[in-house]
């Protein structure tokens, strides 16, 4: 029961964050690339002022899977690194915490390029 509730919360919050993206896409002249940049910067900002953490606690993957979650992750990482290592942490925290995601994407990108062919239409 608890699991179903957690999934439902993730579905609703995640769905809402995506819906806002679609709204920006259809109702403003913004293109996807710009929307994504806004999302990631918003994630850092909302994390910095302490709003994103409670959302994440409530929705779990519903807040961490959308790109705002990536922004929050960067924010969390840099904060932790500064606390532990001081000045150098400013430049270390962001990349070290998103290392898995970026490395996985690079790895998959290369592998897919090796295995697959671009399809004609």
């Amino acid at each position: 029961m608890e699991l179903i509730f957690a999934l439902l919360k993730a579905f609703l919050v995640g769905g809402f964050i995506c819906f806002v993206g679609q709204f920006l896409l259809d109702k403003t002249p913004l293109i996807p690339a710009k929307i994504l940049v806004i999302y990631v910067v918003m994630g850092v900002f909302l994390g910095a002022i302490g709003i994103y953490k409670p959302i994440l606690k409530f929705a779990g993957a519903g807040a961490s899977v959308p790109l705002t979650g990536f922004g929050y992750l960067l924010c969390k990482g840099v904060k932790k690194a500064v606390e532990q290592e001081g000045f150098i942490g400013i430049f270390k925290g962001g990349f070290s915490i998103c290392a898995v995601g970026v490395s996985a994407a690079i790895f998959c990108g290369l592998l897919v390029a090796l295995i697959f062919q671009s399809r004609g239409r």
Binding site: F11, G14, G15, F16, I17, C18, F19, G21, G62, V65
Partner: peptide, 13 residues
């Protein structure tokens, strides 16, 4: 967008 985005997040959860 709401439905599919939500599903992906629920799957993530």
């Amino acid at each position: 967008s709401f439905f599919i985005g939500g599903l992906i997040c629920a799957f993530g959860e």
